[in-house]
Design a protein around this nucleic acid. Structure first.
Ligand code: FES
Ligand code: FES
Lengths: 141, 141
DNA sequence: AAGATACTTGACTATTTTAGTCAGGTTTAT
DNA sequence: ATAAACCTGACTAAAATAGTCAAGTATCTT
């Protein structure tokens, strides 16, 4: 079990964006420098975030990105979904009646992974970007 | 986020073993056939489980593996630990004061991943092999 | 109008991890 | 003796990851 960089960076970048998202858009270059994330990689990530309407882009000089909703309304599940970070722990297709081993019934551990999936999903669905920013409000970067 | 096959198979195989672990040892060949897991791969996995004293081996004809403790006493955390399935969601080294970006302080999302790690750990630490077997007791394989 | 900044897109790739396979053992019940 | 089953280490194809690279387009400032 691990988390990939894409999801990790997406959350990190948005947390940064939420913090500095006062009036002006925040450029990816700034986020890249502050958070130590490759600019090119950030662009891939923000392209996805924009398509899922989590951020808006502002082109041109002094451009950048702004949040498309209030930080409180952006749950971590939304972010993960946008960048295709899967919180999938069952192996099989849930809708199918077949098991992950190709047999007719679900495997011995199917229920376990399904429970875990819910467990993790709930964790992410309760956390908003605002929560994240608040947690860090006393800190300096 | 996903789970690798190694941890998945380890739990599946042990669930199978626990079910059939009456008097005689259970051979990997049987587990392989029942659960549809490559025999060679199972051997790698059980080698680790044996080193961590989760199972005992019985060599020779009619040999196989038996649980080394009661199913109730084997938590999923033990199993995952034995096969090196990491439930590590923070990127950095926890002991270090440095962040995952190499900077002097922990990153904006460090606390988040740390919380998640605990969340998942607790889930696994509350589940025993016995729980798994019971859940499936009414089913046929 | 020119230049600079910054978003936009798509293709490409080195590295690492995963999920095994393969080959050659050793041990023990019958 | 033979067969079943454990034991070990090395090897590898395929997939995923974490980027890089290149060639744009839009908009602001001067
Ligand atoms: S995970 Fe669903 S059948 Fe195995
Ligand atoms: S995860 Fe620990 S500093 Fe980023």
């Amino acid at each position: 079990m691990k988390l990939t960089s894409k999801g990790r960076y997406a959350v990190m970048a948005l947390a940064d964006l939420a913090r500095f998202n006062n009036v002006n858009p925040v450029s990816l270059r700034d986020i890249s420098l502050r958070q130590g994330i490759s600019l090119d990689y950030l662009e891939q990530i923000f392209s996805k975030l924009r398509k899922k309407e989590i951020v808006q882009s502002v082109r041109g000089t002094q451009g950048g990105y702004i949040l498309n909703k209030k930080a409180k309304e952006i749950k971590l599940t939304n972010i993960f979904d946008a960048v295709d970070e899967k919180v999938k722990t069952v192996q099989c297709k849930k809708e199918s009646k077949k098991g992950c081993n190709g047999k007719a019934t679900k495997c011995l551990t199917h229920n376990l992974w399904d429970e875990l999936e819910n467990h993790i999903y709930n964790f992410f669905d309760e956390k908003s970007l605002e929560d994240l920013v608040k947690e860090n409000s006393e800190r300096r970067i």
